[in-house]
Design a protein around this nucleic acid. Sequence first.
DNA 1: GTAACGAGGTTGTAATACAACTAACAGCAA
DNA 2: TTGCTGTTAGTTGTATTACAACCTCGTTAC
Lengths: 235, 235
Amino acid sequence: MSIKPIKKVNVSEQVFEQMKGFLTKGEWRPGEKLPSENELAEKFGVSRITIRQALQKLNVLGLLETRLGEGSFVREIEPGDSMNALLPAVLFNRDMLMQVEEFREIVEVESVKLAAERASKEDIAVLRQILERMERCQGNPKKFGAADLEFHMKLGEMTRNDLVVKTEGILQSTLQEAMEDIVRGTGYAPGIHYHGELIEAMEQHDGRRAASIMKEHLSNNKNFIIKEEEIKDGL
Amino acid sequence: MSIKPIKKVNVSEQVFEQMKGFLTKGEWRPGEKLPSENELAEKFGVSRITIRQALQKLNVLGLLETRLGEGSFVREIEPGDSMNALLPAVLFNRDMLMQVEEFREIVEVESVKLAAERASKEDIAVLRQILERMERCQGNPKKFGAADLEFHMKLGEMTRNDLVVKTEGILQSTLQEAMEDIVRGTGYAPGIHYHGELIEAMEQHDGRRAASIMKEHLSNNKNFIIKEEEIKDGL
DNA sequence: GTAACGAGGTTGTAATACAACTAACAGCAA
DNA sequence: TTGCTGTTAGTTGTATTACAACCTCGTTAC
């Protein structure tokens, strides 16, 4: 005798899933205007309230844009835009920050290999510009940290993989504030050193070397956070 | 003369902003139960519809959890929540299955190292269960593919990193359909073989071996997709 | 030609009602 | 007491209807 759990699925959830399907399957294309809420309600056989719930969810997720008096439209999204930086990173504690840095290590160590393989001369020139800005910004932890993240963002773009780019965007917006502390703690020298070496690896299209540099670089950050934590716990 | 843009703010948007303030300022603490929708409607001086819109938005953002018949509760913010922003990029890249697989390779090859280091006996038992289910499901591409993804999901959980878990979840939900085709194309043997080897690597806590197995495993998938695309383009 | 107006369609908000669900309590039986 | 059962009050989910706010576009008046 095996009792299976009863599934109680929201109606609005079902509508949402179907709509998501239309978007993924390309039935509703970017820029296109959706049928009106009344029309959708009739077609789905549910009330307008339910339709609105599903639409709103898609809105929050950034898949749709609803304009008063006009209708709902499928959003065209560029992989780079980190519009949905809605979570206040202030609420992050050290443990969460640790997880973020760990995740960075996972993604960036591997993706920088791709970046090295696919690097163009223009890419490298941009990297060098950012590095120069970092050198000029020594003494200003905020600007230095921002440039540092920008460097990593550019490396992400160089993979030519939209998901990596998007991920880097999320990480960037999450780490923006924490970066200032990290720079204060580790100083400016390591950042400049590692980023310089990364540029060299890009020039040589040496993915393995780039990966090992990146691993060391990010481990430094992680160790700093661990030390911070110990100091805090010690008090 | 400076003309400022006219702000026409939704009522529900205002309610949402206020509620977000309560959450970030700690007026509503994690785990706490919010007043009922009716009560909130009365206090804010708006209709229940409007309250529900604001609540739902907070739900989608992961700040609240609403349970039917019980009420709305403040959720503990998890670092993984920020990865929700990945969803739009994944959804719209439907004909970029290639990019998704490439991204998987980046994330999973590196994260499986962590999984190996942190694997417990219980984890490995679960993996073995899933593998057995895969063996039983040979002949059923749909179920086999689902179990396959579940295996990878479990590996993600074993990293104990919320961002990895969230990312795997998003990837899983988008790959579900494609997986069926991949299984049909590659057959059942490779999946069972590689997953078996991964379990061995987990038992030995051998991260490097796990990573190399995973790389080979995912490369197989990628190669299949490349072939598929060539056939498609050939027509 | 141009500006003002208005019609029709669309989303936003409200009020009300009921269904579906949960938790807690009262009451009964062993 | 202890354990089960039925009831009840409270909560969220959905439906219905209505109207306000807004946009687009064609028509009209000057």
